[in-house]
Design a protein around this nucleic acid. Structure first.
Lengths: 207, 207
DNA sequence: CTTAGAAGTGGACTACAGTCCGATTGTGCT
DNA sequence: AGCACAATCGGACTGTAGTCCACTTCTAAG
């Protein structure tokens, strides 16, 4: 391999420069280390930049803001869930009735959030509206909207119901309930019931 | 009236000093003025303090943080809704079946939020978890939990479902949908449907 | 290898939320 | 009216998110 191979990505825009890629890794590694050591909320982006040995401007150039950094750290997990929804086995993937798929999604998503609740919260609450600007959120919302329409819901209502299904899955809500004394199992059960209620009749009547 | 009358409040703790009360009014008035003039998001608490002619420390002493100031401005409206829920006519007040009351509440609450969405958002998103620390939120949640239990939901599920009913009513969610092109009527209709689905069968089967 | 210009860098800078404490001002009592 | 004390005031101070731009480094083409 005499030179850097062309390595055409997925029809990529220009391509990332080598030093930029190196810095990105350094930043992500540093963030992971610090979050593990001190807790997500106690780490400033100055500290991440220092630990990574890069300037603060570099962190912001790469990730935009705190929310972007958190989203990047969660990226792999999200991709896995997206793959499972699009190509995996039922009931999460194609094949099951839409209502079942939607219920399975809420469960799978909830498990993801419970894996790193503070990190997800940071990605969602870094600034007002941050949650809705993240690419992944649009994906979840679109997916649920489609399933609701397939299940017979009129399109305009389906959009709002998709939002309503996602709203209580926000990390901020989940953590608030845990802080209030609820345990994870109770929250999971309650949210499963919520999804069933929203999708109930339809799943069996129209499915 | 030779001296300040005793004026025993509702079995009050010590009582508020005269200058403190005066400053509180000045701050609330200044905030109202600035929010109206420049928009909620463009006003800093420094600016509020300056406009009110008091020091910054005074603003924080009185209201704790941004969220507290917003909550104070919304206070009157919230009290009115609380009164209507506890003592007003059905379906919001006592008398109607619990499911009907809960549905009526989501509608009434939504109207309140739509009156000052940015202000409500500020009170809810000033810091992570701010929404759940506000006294009013606990009231709404408790109210819905009670109604759900009356409607036959087991208590542990009712707690989580109450959260799930409130979650999509967060100002941040509503504004995100408006920004995404939805109109207020569509969101209202969708959230009404959501409430009906969560409360549906129960209202008629068990009510 | 050289070179031109795009892409990336880093740290000084701004603005804002929230804290702290010495100075000030009401309040209740005599 | 005068006093002692506690509540309140206000602005200087700290720490953080996010911006900006003069400077450096990489890449690709000749």
């Amino acid at each position: 391999m005499p030179l850097g191979l062309p390595e055409i990505g997925p029809a990529g825009p220009p391509r990332e420069r080598a030093d930029a890629a190196r810095n990105r890794r350094k930043i992500l590694d540093a963030a992971t280390r610090l979050f593990a050591a001190r807790g997500v909320d106690a780490v400033s982006l100055d500290a991440v930049a220092a630990e990574a040995g890069v300037g603060k401007g570099t962190v912001f150039r790469r990730f935009g803001d705190k929310s972007g950094l958190a989203a990047a750290l969660l990226d792999e997990q999200e991709r896995r869930l997206q793959q499972a929804m699009l190509f995996g086995p039922p009931p999460l993937g194609p094949g099951a009735p839409p209502a079942q798929r939607a219920i399975a999604f809420t469960r799978a998503y909830l498990d993801c959030v419970f894996d790193h609740p503070e990190l997800v919260r940071m990605s969602e609450t870094a600034s007002p509206g941050a949650r809705f600007r993240i690419g992944a959120f649009r994906f979840w919302r679109l997916h649920l909207t489609i399933l609701l329409v397939e299940a017979g819901e009129p399109a305009p209502l389906a959009e709002v119901l998709a939002h309503a299904l996602l709203a209580p899955l926000a990390a901020d809500h989940l953590l608030a309930q845990l802080d209030a004394g609820a345990d994870r199992a109770a929250v999971t059960a309650g949210l499963r019931r919520h999804a069933e209620l929203v999708l109930a009749t339809r799943g069996t009547i129209e499915g």
